[in-house]
Simulated assay, not measured.
Amino acid sequence: MPDNKHITHPADAKRIDIHDLHEVRNWCQGFGCTEEELNNAVAAVGTWADDVREYLKK
Rank of each mutant, 00 (worst) to 15 (best):
M1D: 05
M1I: 03
P2Y: 10
P2K: 12
D3F: 05
D3S: 11
D3Y: 06
N4V: 09
N4G: 00
K5D: 11
K5E: 14
I7F: 07
I7Y: 06
T8Y: 05
T8H: 08
H9R: 08
P10G: 07
A11W: 09
A11M: 12
A11H: 06
A11P: 00
A13V: 15
A13D: 14
K14M: 11
R15K: 15
R15G: 00
R15D: 02
R15W: 07
I16Y: 02
I16T: 03
I18N: 00
H19F: 10
H19Y: 11
D20Q: 07
L21D: 15
L21W: 01
E23W: 02
E23C: 01
V24H: 03
V24W: 01
R25N: 14
R25H: 10
N26G: 12
W27Y: 15
W27S: 05
W27G: 04
C28V: 04
G30I: 03
F31A: 08
G32M: 07
G32Y: 05
G32V: 11
G32K: 06
C33D: 06
T34H: 02
E35C: 09
E36L: 11
E36V: 15
E36Q: 13
E36Y: 06
E37K: 12
E37D: 14
L38Q: 04
N39E: 09
N39S: 10
N40C: 08
N40V: 07
A41R: 04
A41Q: 01
V42M: 06
V42S: 04
V42N: 02
V42W: 01
A43Q: 07
A43I: 00
V45Y: 03
G46F: 02
G46L: 00
G46A: 02
T47Y: 03
W48V: 13
D50V: 11
D50Y: 06
D51H: 09
D51R: 11
D51G: 00
V52P: 02
V52H: 03
V52L: 05
R53D: 15
R53T: 10
E54P: 00
E54C: 03
E54R: 14
E54G: 00
E54S: 13
Y55E: 08
L56N: 10
L56G: 09
K57V: 06
K57Y: 08
K57H: 12
